[in-house]
Design a protein around this nucleic acid. Structure first.
Lengths: 248, 248
DNA sequence: GCGGGACGTCGAAGGGGTTCAAGGCGATCT
DNA sequence: AGATCGCCTTGAACCCCTTCGACGTCCCGC
């Protein structure tokens, strides 16, 4: 797969280097295009940190002085309205970058849904790296464009789809995210609660619950245990997401 | 009205520095950080074009071989659902970049709401420029992050705000966009139809019409002529957008 | 074991926005 | 001027999703 996944003898002593070997960012994320030397420099400047589920990586309004890469685990990014309502603007998985912004303060909360390991860089350090490694800056731009496209797609979902179509689209996006990370599993991790999903889709948690129950009764999905889904009928779910399904 | 208006719709010019001098991109857009020399090189590679209102710059699915900067005019970016429903993912104004993506084909339609002048670059040319001018690539990244933040904000609007709050938020975003371009006018250009606004906000055109009528009756706005609004009570509109307004 | 809290499910009622329908207004063309 | 068309407005009925309430389940701490 990735030629750099082989442990290099000169870096074996470097604890940080070993971390990079297993980082999700190597497969699909920021560090994908980097060679061993660049990787080594980055890992020497980055700090790894471990945070428990439900902790905040940062809060909306905090000074945006750090950038994170999710090594493993799942995070949700949320914006709060003055009246207390919440909107999840996105979920982030292994390898995704969190908190890169040109603004002075973060425009959203970043909360962990699972225990997670993160790779932390201070903005000045990252800016230096971006200057020294044009490939890195290019990669950052690519990731940003991808994220923008995904957010626009989400806008379509929230703005124009019915409740069940939104939930279906969410499930499909889970499959896509899993595939992008190279984990084509039958059973997907889904650490988010009904409320999280509802806040992502612009629905209430009851509506999400009812939709998932409906899918289950139709034999489209199974939830073997809490926080895990199996999609039994991807075509039907896809059709529902696209509004092509007239039978329901 | 428009000095470049000619009988033929796809007229192309190649005037160098003079064109850039008046381009919106110098004030707030991509070319803002460039010096005269770089600007000269870009303008020699770029083609200016003039397109009439309601024409398409490109269509969703077209091979993404070109990138455009809007010199003046307004464009809407839309995604189409299989069932024919439409979602406007954003409006673009003078100086904004349109059509930069890493995908093979454009993920949305770009349609002009007004007559417009555009600056066109082929992707290979742009990639070359980005490589030669790191400032340009950096600027592109910054613009992308800004756009992402704006789209996330829009997600909050569509996902969690009431109909009138959405329309209010839209009006405020118009003011912001106008200010960003350095045009702090009392009366704003609003070339989009009720249907355009509705497709942007995830509403029907009837609901948009009713909301605007309500604002007018409350003395918050005036529409002196077609496609032009004056905000008479920005605080009230802002409060409505934020859901802080209990009196309605 | 038992209590408590977080999370999920389900039913009934209500409402905000949609849908459907009709008409008005201004611009353009003949 | 009259006709046509696109856009906007307004009314009335409907409906999908929300709201509210109740209950079930699982898990964890005591």
């Amino acid at each position: 797969m990735n030629p750099f996944d082989v442990p290099h003898p000169t870096h074996e002593a470097n604890a940080a280097g070993q971390v990079c070997d297993r980082c999700g960012s190597r497969v699909a994320g920021l560090c994908q295009p980097l060679d061993a030397a660049a990787l080594d420099e980055i890992s020497s400047e980055a700090n790894q940190m471990v945070l428990p589920a439900h902790s905040a990586v940062f809060r909306e309004g905090d000074p945006a002085g750090r950038v994170f890469t999710l090594i493993d685990g799942v995070a949700k990014l949320t914006r709060l309205l003055p009246d207390g309502k919440q909107q999840v603007v996105g979920f982030r998985f292994a390898g995704d970058v969190i908190g890169y912004t040109t603004l002075k303060s973060y425009p959203f909360d970043a909360e962990l849904l699972t225990d997670a390991r993160l790779c932390r860089l201070d903005r000045p350090q990252l800016d230096g790296l971006l200057r020294r490694y044009p490939k890195l800056e290019r990669r950052m731009l690519d990731l940003c464009v991808q994220e923008l496209t995904a957010t626009q797609e989400q806008l379509v979902t929230v703005g124009r789809r019915s409740a069940e179509a939104r939930v279906a689209a969410f499930l499909i996006s889970l499959v896509d995210a899993s595939r992008r990370r190279g984990e084509p599993r039958q059973v997907l991790e889904m650490p988010m609660t009904r409320a999280d999903i509802a806040d992502f889709l612009g629905l209430t948690l009851e509506t999400v619950s009812r939709s998932l129950t409906a899918f289950r009764k139709r034999g489209w999905i199974r939830e073997p245990v809490h926080h895990r889904v199996e999609l039994l009928n991807v075509p039907a779910i896809t059709a529902m997401a696209e509004g092509t399904n007239d039978s329901f």
